[in-house]
């Protein structure tokens, strides 16, 4: 069994909304048609987004902390939004656990949004069908993309690598390790929805130094060091040259 999911690291999210814009860009340009906006440049702009970044202030001044909190469909393992759908437009894929909406079947009754405790679904007010995060199902299996690009658009866009993507049922995957080692948790566990997406809490920041940062690969001194070195017995330049 595979359950693809995002793991979102609240420790490094800086609230830049890069994931929001890249999600919107990718999903408004796809075969399923645009994610419609209304009055995008007017006084009261509103639109369909599959991912939003919210901000919370935790604590009492002056001991406060600002937490940026990206939120999209959590691809629950026991999704309450699926069985309530009268048309079968909402479904959870067996092969990878992604929860999707079939836009050709949806009648826009909005019942599924009532059944999602996270407010993760938004109706497209122009197309009148339900929209939600697809985990970029149209990217991650696209063999015409380079292997490294077969990730959700938001994951690719995040400048701080706050978003990890992978199979949480594979205990060796990077996401499983991140959840295990960094206290990853699910939202609103009280409803038994078993969200696949997890969040990593604020924690002590560890500086990660890569090998090539300790010793610069392109250090000019090192480059010199790679020049041929004559052995001790060989005549030196002074021996063979009269200046």
């Amino acid at each position: 069994m595979t359950q693809l999911a995002l793991v979102i690291d609240l420790n490094v999210c800086v609230g830049c909304h890069a994931c929001v814009t890249s999600c919107k860009e990718w999903n408004t340009s796809g075969a399923a048609g645009p994610l419609c906006d209304e009055n995008p440049y007017g006084a009261d702009p509103t639109g369909t987004f599959l991912n939003r970044v919210q901000t919370f202030e935790v604590g009492q001044y002056p001991n406060t902390e600002t937490v940026h909190f990206p939120k999209s469909c959590l691809h629950c393992e026991d999704p309450p939004c699926v069985p309530v759908c009268p048309t079968g437009a909402s479904y959870k894929r067996k092969q990878d656990g992604i929860v999707l909406v079939d836009y050709d079947k949806c009648i826009g009754c909005k019942y599924c949004t009532w059944a999602c405790p996270y407010g993760a679904r938004e109706i497209d007010e122009k197309q009148k069908v339900m929209k939600k995060c697809t985990l970029c199902v149209d990217r991650i299996y696209d063999t015409s993309l380079a292997e490294i690009d077969r990730k959700p658009s938001c994951v690719k866009a995040c400048p701080t690598s706050a978003r990890l993507f992978g199979d949480i049922h594979d205990s060796e995957s990077a996401v499983s390790q991140a959840i295990r080692e960094n206290g990853g948790y699910a939202l609103m566990p009280e409803w038994g929805t078993h969200p696949a997406n997890h969040y990593l809490p604020r924690r002590k920041t560890h500086l990660k130094i890569h090998e090539d940062e300790l010793e610069r690969a392109d250090n000019p001194l090192k480059v010199d060091g790679k020049l041929p070195k004559p052995s001790k017995s060989e005549p030196t330049l002074d021996d063979v040259t009269s200046w």
Partner: peptide, 15 residues
Amino acid sequence: RIVQTAQGAMGGSFS
């Protein structure tokens, strides 16, 4: 004590 300071949209949303 947790207070929301932004919900990710200025003009309201479906939610």
